[in-house]
Design a binder for these strands. Structure first.
Lengths: 219, 219
DNA sequence: CGCGGTTTGTCACGCAACTGTCATAGATCC
DNA sequence: GGATCTATGACAGTTGCGTGACAAACCGCG
């Protein structure tokens, strides 16, 4: 929720939590946008009258970053504002004060329409290597590889953070869901993965060792 | 547009045509539903106060037939009605009299969210395999297969997410509506389904096992 | 209400594939 | 040159999957 009026933020936030939502709120567009980038919510409520960046611009920026459902919650009951907000990329526009039940129903209705957050992760491409987390497929030179589950989860994890070094411990946590574990285990699986995704496994070009730190997938 | 008041139908219809829409209208839910079945519109506007079948029931039936965007245009400004209409499957609710510009903007906003051409889920085609969820038919090489209810729901679920891996737990939830369940159960039914839809059931080419993850229907 | 046939869920078993461990060999750094 | 880090082959234990058999539940029908 991006809303500058503290009281509304408080009361609406609590009311929505009663409805079962988890609410995070920001007092300015800048804060809200940053929060949405850092850790995206699955629905955004935004006021139009904001200090600094105004609501319309805020909507446009949210839209540029992704296709999160956006509902305007505004005190202004004016056709021009409604049209402008929807044009900017909002999905719905309700007038304050709003019945929480109605807002909640509108959020649910909108959620039904929202694309199941896949557009971004459908295919990750790294040159000749393509990874489709949803489809459980990895292709090299256009050909389907047969990876084991561990190999698959490992490469997905690396691909989601392509270019960043992940330590063995991080990988153990995320792929194996171990709290601790033997670093060698990661090595072994990296090795097996290289056999499959590297053109020359002994001289890795995609799955890179960063000595002392961990591994990364070359962008 | 499903609306029983002739004057509103007239004026709103003309106004929307000015906005560039092609409008067809019906005076009762029965007429409107029939029209939508015969030649689906890409957005439906519906009043709540209708003679015969009322607006809520009309929405439910439209929803059962497909996922056309539905906007309620009602004179009643009542939270209960809004919530009920949205629960029934409507996507938006505006109060009469409504500014045409606003209605038009809401229609456009909704259209952005509408799944492109999934309205035509009449037949899902996978090579020689055709699935008609609405008709309850599955054809292989043009011939009608006789599937059990479970097999049918299973293949529909897989077909709706063709190319994506569905885990056994996901399938249990969606096909069986179990919250938990035995993974073997899914295996067994997948096996039975393969007997019917695979040319060589022991070497599946359509209904693919993704080891450690689940199953998917090959696009 | 009872009767056939069909559908459904459970189970146990066997095969194939996968996993983690270890030991050894190799690479890199200072 | 020694210390540290990484790669890899082999192996035994485990897991995941497919399947046939079977009993319970269901269904249409007389």
């Amino acid at each position: 929720m991006i809303e500058d009026d503290d009281r509304i933020r408080m009361s609406l936030g609590l009311a929505l939590e009663d409805e079962g939502y988890t609410v995070r709120s920001a007092g300015t567009a800048e804060e809200g946008l940053a929060a949405q980038r850092a850790d995206p919510a699955d629905t955004v409520l935004v006021d139009l009258m904001l200090p600094g960046i105004d609501g319309f611009e805020c909507i446009r920026q949210l839209r540029r970053d992704g296709d999160v459902p956006i509902i305007v919650v505004s005190a202004r009951d004016d056709t021009h504002d409604v049209v402008a907000a929807l044009e900017a990329g909002a999905d719905d526009y309700v007038i304050k004060p709003v019945a929480v039940k109605e807002l909640s129903a509108r959020m649910r209705a909108l959620r039904r329409r929202a694309r199941p957050a896949q557009a971004s992760t459908l295919t990750l491409v790294f040159g000749e290597l393509e990874i489709r987390p949803q489809a459980g497929e990895v292709l090299l030179h256009g050909e389907l590889l047969s990876l084991t589950r561990t190999e698959f989860r490992l490469i997905c994890e690396l691909a989601e953070h392509a270019g960043l070094v992940l330590s063995r411990q991080q990988l153990l946590e995320r792929v194996w869901e171990y709290d601790y574990g033997d670093d060698r285990l990661v090595d072994v699986h990296i090795g097996r993965l290289r056999q499959k995704i590297e053109d020359n496994p002994s001289v890795p070009s995609r799955l890179i060792t960063v000595r002392g730190l961990g591994y990364k997938l070359q962008r």
